[in-house]
Design a protein around this nucleic acid. Structure first.
Lengths: 237, 237
DNA sequence: ATAAAGTCCGAACGAACGTTCGGTAACTAG
DNA sequence: CTAGTTACCGAACGTTCGTTCGGACTTTAT
């Protein structure tokens, strides 16, 4: 929930974006990561995530947003160049944060099964602590087009790949047989669906949820992987 | 006053909607379940589902829809009274169809585990055969407000309840211990997430997908339900 | 002090939105 | 045939949309 560094480059499209850099060469002090610009942008991004979460990207108007952020319509455009870029900034920041967190936590264990549990718990903890941003991630999954969409999709693929590797480690070490793709997408289904139903007043917190879903998923993968022959039942072709 | 509406009736709000019934009073010929009106409405609904699926409910314009349906903007309003009602008709019809199909198929078995597999397979088969409508169901989950929203939400609760009952049957018969709510929501996560990734050219068909997810889910539920302890029994592999 | 840069706003732009209205063909009933 | 209903459309309504522009106040640099 901290401010994003203002390294907001599109990476693509080198044009036209009003982008400020925080620590540009001027100042003597090496780096000031939080400029006024950065702090205000972070605040706007947070309000925007809430509005996009509530009304959807297309359903939310810039006027809704200006009301929520307590800033004039025109004033908003000081911080980004279009509504689309706003969505891009939210999605990119959210993905990068959760990936960084996962990578850090995964360093602490070498056991394949425990690493999968760590991955799940990290995802659930971040999801429940940042519900709005996570809903915007999944709900506006294919809203962004062109370069910005491709970039976010690439980051998402990284995240997917982390989980896939964890599962293939497990499979090798335990000598199991199952489709990693099907398993990882089932797991993502479980943990990404939570935003549609989780109610903090009735449902468990992230840690217990992670334990329950970890049990369910790992129990399923392990118990089936052991006895399974892949081309089993003749079935309909 | 004006006309439309047929077997897709709106049980809530008795006012203001243009209502028309299909087989009203007169026709002698045995069954005309399909009047011209009904057939045209069904066609429009199908086009609308595709457009809503592609661009989202808010992102889709009535002009997009009129182009897709090959009908003028004004002509569309002969069949429904607002864009919102259009979404309502799609969602209601989809839910009712999948529920009816599930109920019919479930009659054919009394074994709790097999019944869960039937439920999963029914859901996946319908989902893959009606991708657009299913995406509109889940993606525009909280778009509808007021009476129409409440009605769709009630139908959805029925569907959830069917699955919950199946799981509690399993738990009783097998003497397992697990949270039915967590289990059913995890299962829904798996099977509803499919629309975000399934590619018919690479991924298995509904039957094999249902087998795989049934194995995963039932394996997890059963193996964990038996030993209320943490996972990974110390037993040697 | 003066200049430059950064921050923010009121007002307006043209385009697109959902919906309505008056009318016109086509079909159906008697 | 005529009368009436059904199916549909062109054109427009009023509103809201994302975005822009010129200017003004505030902070920073010299």
């Amino acid at each position: 929930m901290r401010a994003p560094q203002s390294q907001f480059e599109s990476t693509s499209q080198a044009a036209a974006l009003p982008v400020r850099r925080s620590g540009n060469g001027r100042k003597a002090s090496a780096d000031s990561p939080d400029t006024r610009f950065d702090r205000q942008l972070a605040k706007v991004l947070q309000h925007a995530a809430r509005i996009f979460c509530d009304k959807g990207f297309e359903g939310a108007s810039m006027r809704d947003l200006s009301r929520a952020a307590g800033m004039s319509l025109a004033g908003l455009y000081h911080y980004f160049s279009s509504k689309e870029e706003l969505l891009y900034l939210i999605q990119k920041h959210t993905f990068e944060t959760i990936i960084a967190s996962a990578r850090t936590r995964l360093e602490k264990s070498a056991d394949p099964e425990e690493r999968i549990r760590i991955f799940i718990e990290n995802h659930l903890e971040y999801s429940l602590a940042n519900k709005e941003a996570m809903k915007v991630l999944t709900h506006e999954d294919d809203t962004l087009k062109n370069d910005q969409g491709a970039e976010v999709r690439a980051i998402k693929r990284d995240y997917y790949r982390i989980c896939l590797d964890l599962l293939e480690d497990l499979r090798k070490v335990k000598g199991l047989q199952f489709s990693s793709r099907l398993a990882v997408l089932s797991l993502f289904g479980m943990i990404n669906w939570i935003y549609t139903w989780h109610n903090p007043r009735v449902d468990p917190d992230a840690a217990e949820l992670a334990r329950g879903m970890g049990d369910l998923f790992l129990g399923g993968v392990v118990s089936n992987g052991k006895t399974k022959r892949k081309t089993s039942a003749p079935g309909p072709k």
